[in-house]
Amino acid sequence: MKEIAYRVRATGRVQGVAYRAWAQGQSRALGLRGWVRNRGDGSVEALIAGPEAAVEAMVTAMGEGPGAARVTDVWTEPADPAAVPAGFAVRA
């Protein structure tokens, strides 16, 4: 099973809508590892790694977000899966 990793950034109304907690729950359900955090510019950034299909599913889900979110864009950048920590954390 091929493992991949992405650094992902979501913009729009993604802060103050439980996006990070939602992303943590989704990632754990998909068996992914990494972290998610708010950025000072109002976006949310995540580093996710795991099986290719699960990572791709999470990137797609991040384009929707939780019910109160209004995601306008999602950017991805490949990352090194070996550099992604175990578990999935919400960072400050």
Rank of each mutant, 00 (worst) to 15 (best):
W35T: 06
E64C: 04
S27D: 10
A57E: 15
E52N: 04
F88L: 10
E45G: 11
G50C: 06
S27Y: 05
P81L: 00
G67I: 11
G25V: 05
G65P: 02
R28A: 08
T11D: 08
V55P: 00
T72H: 10
A54N: 13
A46W: 01
W35L: 12
V90P: 15
V59K: 07
A86C: 03
R13V: 12
A23K: 00
G34N: 01
E56G: 12
N38T: 09
A54L: 01
R13I: 05
D73N: 14
V90Q: 10
V44K: 05
A83Q: 15
Q26E: 15
A29D: 13
A5S: 11
P85G: 07
I4V: 14
V14P: 01
I4Q: 07
V17E: 02
E77K: 14
V59W: 08
P81H: 02
R39Y: 03
A61M: 12
A53K: 15
V74S: 03
A92T: 00
A18R: 09
V74A: 08
L47V: 11
G31E: 11
A92Q: 03
T11H: 05
R70F: 08
G12A: 07
M58F: 14
A5P: 03
G40C: 09
M62N: 03
R70A: 15
A86E: 15
E45D: 09
W22V: 04
A82T: 15
V90N: 10
E56N: 14
S43H: 10
D73H: 15
L30W: 11
G50V: 04
A49S: 13
A83G: 12
W22N: 03
I48A: 11
I4D: 05
R37G: 02
A21S: 12
R20I: 06
P81D: 04
A23H: 00
V55W: 00
A10D: 01
A82N: 14
R70S: 11
